[in-house]
């Protein structure tokens, strides 16, 4: 028995090693925060740089429209079904219904099955999209938006919103404009854009903006933590600028998809 125990002592445990690395990173982050200086981010980005983005339409063949988004380690797939007849139990409505559902795979987070609050995210996704979707164009019917987070690497909700907007456009649902979303985190005096999950764990506050660039309208603004007036203004402007740039990527994706189909 002791021989077996001795043999297992030297074995390599990937989970333990990964946990050790995470702890080291958090310690380093805490040290930088204490100094309140301009520190390098874990992935080498500057404070106002977003993660490299990859987006694609049509990964789900069964859906009316679908999109896949990959921002750094965060991977999301959104499928849109409908417009389809509302269930008989629902009351008559002269505007359409938008049904949003966000779910996480069991392997999305480092600790198995520790996804975010799905109901809260579903409600926030609905809030961000309902201002953009022309619900009056499909009365008595429902459009279902199902988002699945394949891997959670931070800033999940903004990516879900942007990806859902792309999927809605791919499905041919009438929308006023594409909705893009970006979040920023506050660390002392510093504002960093598109935080990773490690950065989100140590933030003092966060702002998430869902924005329609062509109409210059904000469909949702979520604020957590302590913020001063000046800092809020800077953060929102930073988000809106990033949203406009992200919207250009979404437009290119849609045009590429349309030209490929032809």
């Amino acid at each position: 028995m002791s021989a077996a125990a001795a043999a297992t002592d030297g074995t390599y445990s990937p989970a333990a090693a990964a946990g050790e690395k995470r702890r080291e990173r958090k310690e380093e982050l805490r040290r930088h925060l204490a100094e309140d200086a301009d520190w390098p981010r874990a992935d080498g980005r500057s404070f106002h740089d977003c993660r490299p983005a990859f987006m694609q339409t049509g990964p789900t063949t069964a859906a009316s429209g679908s999109a896949y988004a990959e921002f750094g380690k965060t991977k999301v797939i959104v499928s849109v079904f409908g417009p389809r007849e509302s269930k008989k139990a629902m009351l008559y409505s002269d505007t359409g219904r938008l049904n949003c559902n966000v779910s996480y795979t069991t392997f999305a987070t480092p600790i198995r099955g520790q996804g975010m609050d799905n109901k809260e995210y579903s409600a926030m996704l609905h809030k961000a999209l309902e201002g953009a979707v022309m619900l009056h164009t499909f009365p008595k019917t429902t459009v279902d938006v199902f988002a699945l987070v394949l891997e959670s690497g931070g800033s999940d909700l903004p990516i879900i919103i942007s990806c859902a907007s792309l999927a809605l456009a791919d499905a041919g649902i009438m929308i006023y404009d594409l909705v893009t979303s970006v979040s920023v985190s506050c660390f002392g005096k510093n504002i960093i854009i598109d935080p990773t999950s490690d950065e989100e764990a140590w933030q003092d506050g966060s702002i998430m903006v869902a924005y329609m660039p062509a109409r210059k309208e904000i469909t949702q603004l979520t604020l957590t933590g302590e913020w001063s007036d000046g800092k809020i203004t800077n953060a929102v402007e930073l988000c809106m600028d990033a949203c406009s740039k992200l919207c250009d990527i979404l437009r290119e994706r849609l045009k590429d998809a349309a030209s490929l189909a032809e």
Binding site: A171, G172, I173, I175, A258
Partner: peptide, 25 residues
């Protein structure tokens, strides 16, 4: 005049505009 769906903008003389798109629905 703004587009509300993705596709090709079409014009039929004299002045009929629409967006022609390909969908599953």
């Amino acid at each position: 005049i703004q587009a509300t769906s993705a596709g090709r903008l079409r014009l039929s003389k004299p002045s009929k505009y629409w967006v022609e798109s390909s969908q599953k629905r």
